[in-house]
Design a binder for these strands. Structure first.
Length: 401
DNA sequence: CGTCCACAGGAATGACGGGCGG
DNA sequence: CCGCCCGTCATTCCTGTGGACG
């Protein structure tokens, strides 16, 4: 943080002379797929069984995978896909495996674009109708006789934001694209999302289902220890620190990803400090850091007016405010910086967006005769806000007074 | 018991930058 | 280059609403 005071030489020297904690930094990245996934062998064999018909060129059933975040769904699936790709290549079976994370992709269009690009079509970032892309993909699969397994990670997000139309089209295209085929693997964090699915889509998509249970605290600890052994040099960490990571992040429902993230950040903290050994103190620091980074990333990427609304909500103390007072506050901020203000309607929308981001909390309140408002309480302090907007001079100014 | 406040939040519509195929 | 379609952001117009006040 305050490396400004250090000279570059000092930093470099420190880096050179510091003990090397990490042995294999990669192993703690969130998208890393370990060779061995403890406590998931049942699930892995199930997935493999469902997909294995591919090896004799028949179409595997569609598959739905459930489980809360950090239960190894993605890792296990990727693991199977990877092995399957190897095996099919070795045996001369033509098959393509496409992985797409719906949340990362963001829109239906980009999900389809992923599929299209991986099947050898080139598709622009934007500009085509969704249905156009779909039919291109279908004809590509058909004419090239492709055998495609399409993994849709966080598929619940797709359904929630865009409905099940795309899934319907994808699942029903099975008949029309012979002699090629398309098998779908849906991965969902949300156990309830089936209910939002139309009956026809559901029955087609969930020809097979596999549930990933959460890790127990004990399992989480084992996983983390194993990972640590692989990622760090033997003397570079204490067992207690690793256990603390497991405990801190796994309390509610055995989320392995958070635990691994925490361990990695803690390692980085320790390394930067030039410590000989990663201990519990580093884990505590890392925990704080993760929270703060998450918030300040969210803040920086906010559009201008959202920032202004947020400032209006946070400014002059913590007292919770009505939509009306926020709007007044906001529009005076706009006037002062010569920006045209948006409508109340839009600002109301922005407030709900900030709410879903967890930056403010908005609850509906009735004052009877005196109307009805969203009562808005900021969830972050002025200081955090100021720090996050630090580079953004134009906005920082408004935070004064 | 109805009124009426101060908004919530849905629907329709439009402006805009980007990208297509022809 | 044109006409068309996309997603995003915003505006306009609108109907809905819980409960204190009279």
């Amino acid at each position: 943080m305050d490396q400004n005071s250090e000279t570059l030489e000092a930093i470099f020297h420190k880096a050179l002379s510091a003990p090397k904690l990490f042995n294999n930094h990669e192993a703690l990245r969130s998208d890393y797929v370990p060779d061995h996934l403890p406590f998931r062998s049942d699930q892995i064999t199930s997935v493999a069984q469902v997909l294995s018909p591919l090896l004799h060129s028949s179409r595997p059933s569609n598959l739905l995978i459930y489980g809360k975040t950090g239960t190894g769904k993605t890792a296990a699936t990727k693991h199977v896909i990877f092995k399957l790709a190897q095996t099919s290549k070795a045996n001369g079976v033509k098959a393509s495996f496409v992985y797409s994370n719906v949340r990362m992709a963001g829109t239906e269009y980009r999900v389809l674009a992923d599929l299209a690009n991986q099947t050898g079509l080139s598709i622009p970032f934007t500009g085509l109708a969704v249905s156009e892309v779909l039919s291109r993909v279908q004809s590509q699969i058909k004419t090239k006789k492709l055998h495609v397994v399409f993994v849709l990670d966080e598929i619940d997000f797709l359904v929630k934001s865009f409905g099940d139309r795309l899934l319907y089209d994808l699942t029903t295209s099975a008949d029309t694209i012979t002699p090629g085929f398309l098998s779908m693997v849906g991965i969902s964090n949300d156990l309830q999302f089936k209910e939002e699915l139309g009956a026809r889509v559901l029955s087609r998509l969930s020809e097979e289902e596999i549930v990933f249970p959460p890790y127990s605290a004990q399992e989480l600890t084992t996983i983390l220890q194993e990972r640590a052994k692989f990622a760090f040099n033997p003397a570079a960490y204490t067992e207690a620190a690793v256990n603390l990571c497991a405990a801190l992040s796994g309390l509610e429902h055995g989320d392995a990803r958070r635990a691994v993230d925490l361990l990695r950040i803690a390692g980085e903290v320790a390394e930067r400090e030039g410590s000989m050994q990663l201990d519990e103190r580093h884990v505590q620091i890392a925990l704080q850091k993760i929270d703060q980074d998450r918030i300040s990333d969210a803040l920086k990427s906010l559009p201008l007016h959202a920032k202004l609304v947020l400032i209006a909500a946070v400014k002059n103390n913590l007292e919770n405010k009505s939509s009306g007072s926020i709007y007044e506050n906001y529009s005076s901020l706009c006037k002062r910086s010569g920006i045209e203000s948006l409508t109340t309607r839009r600002v109301s929308g922005l407030v709900t967006e900030l709410d879903t981001l967890g930056l403010v909390s908005a609850t509906l309140v009735n004052y009877g005769r005196y109307g009805r408002t969203k009562k808005v309480t900021p969830q972050i302090s002025q200081d955090v806000l100021r720090q996050a907007f630090h580079e953004d001079g134009s906005v920082t100014q408004l935070l004064q007074d």
